[in-house]
Design a protein around this nucleic acid. Structure first.
Length: 301
DNA sequence: CGTCTTTGACCGGCGC
DNA sequence: GCGCCGGTCAAAGACG
């Protein structure tokens, strides 16, 4: 756990106008790629080849293979991090339907809809000793791709435009700070998010998203403004080949994406299985924040 | 009264 | 097989 921050590996190196990134290997030979910025202040993990931007944004892909946040490496810290304004915005994640998430059950590819997958049926709970069991036994819990943001903030729960209900809190091993579990309040939405503070730097909040929203944002019910993570999402809009980061989205290339995304009218996604009818859509539209985040390429993996 | 948070218990996965 | 730990449930309480 404790991030694999120290990890530094020589590898491919990418240079951008603002930083130089080094492609390293995961500490334990995992299949996740890690990118380290030259200044070592930030590092990004990416399993899918997210299009990352080496600026000050904070985000990083999390590995859905791991249940733990351990695979989540870290990321840069935007100084402006909205903490000042009270809230941060959340991005969302994307499930990559085709991503063959977690080695099992492809049929559940897109958990959307009412897919009881891991909820009611769910694990953890005390489902009346019925059907679940069978399914549970046979298959492992399906995990959706996850990824997280590290944000310097004083508030734990950052605004992201969606409504969340806290359903649990647990003490984290080796950390004095508890981890909170949130679920999107939309009954059809299976997105979950986990929030915890870095034990190394209490000022940093680590937010991990899991799943994909299938609805619009509720419109910042708590007065939040979307921008930070949303911006992040926007930056990841353009996909790049997996495991390779030929060119990060430079500020120049996406001049105001950060801001433009604040307006996000995120299209609702009827909670239907993703089909990707049009191979080359002009612009990401109906994937919600997640859609913005996930590079097209990812969808085909 | 409805919504959200808190919190202890429970369950499953995993390593030893 | 056992214990640890992460994740989830759900009752109870707090709050607006």
């Amino acid at each position: 756990m404790e991030g694999n921050r120290e990890k530094s590996d020589p590898g491919a190196e990418f240079t951008s106008a603002s930083s130089c990134w080094t492609l390293g290997e995961p500490p334990d030979g995992d299949s996740v790629n890690y990118l380290f910025s030259s200044d070592r202040e930030s590092c990004i993990l990416s399993e899918f080849g997210w299009n990352l931007q080496p600026d000050n944004s904070s985000y990083f892909g999390a590995d859905e293979r791991s249940d733990l946040a351990e695979n989540v490496v870290s990321c840069g810290m935007p100084e402006n991090t909205s903490s000042s304004s009270g809230a941060l915005r959340g991005g969302s994640v994307n499930p990559v339907g085709s991503g063959d998430v977690s080695t099992s059950n492809p049929s559940v590819s897109s958990s959307s809809s009412e897919d009881p997958t891991e909820k009611s049926t769910g694990s953890g709970g005390k489902p009346p000793e019925i059907p679940n069991k069978a399914r549970k036994k046979g298959q492992k819990r399906i995990r959706q791709p996850r990824f997280a943001f590290m944000t310097k903030s004083e508030v734990d729960h950052l605004e992201d435009g969606y409504r969340w209900r806290k359903y649990g809190q647990k003490a984290v091993k080796n950390s004095p700070y508890p981890r909170s579990y949130y679920r999107c309040t939309n009954s059809k939405c299976t997105v979950k998010k986990r929030v915890e503070r870095s034990s190394e730097d209490p000022t940093i909040v680590i937010t991990t998203y899991e799943g994909q929203h299938c609805h619009h944002t509720v419109g910042f019910p708590r007065g939040g403004l979307i921008h930070h993570e949303a911006a992040f999402a926007g930056r990841l809009t353009h996909g790049i080949p997996p495991y390779y980061y030929p060119a990060f989205q430079m500020p120049q290339e996406t001049p105001s994406i950060t801001q433009s995304h604040q307006e996000f009218p995120v299209e609702p996604r009827e909670c239907q299985p993703r089909v990707l009818p049009d191979p080359t859509p002009p612009l990401p539209t109906d994937e919600g924040l997640l859609g913005d985040i996930v590079p097209p390429g990812m969808l085909n993996r």
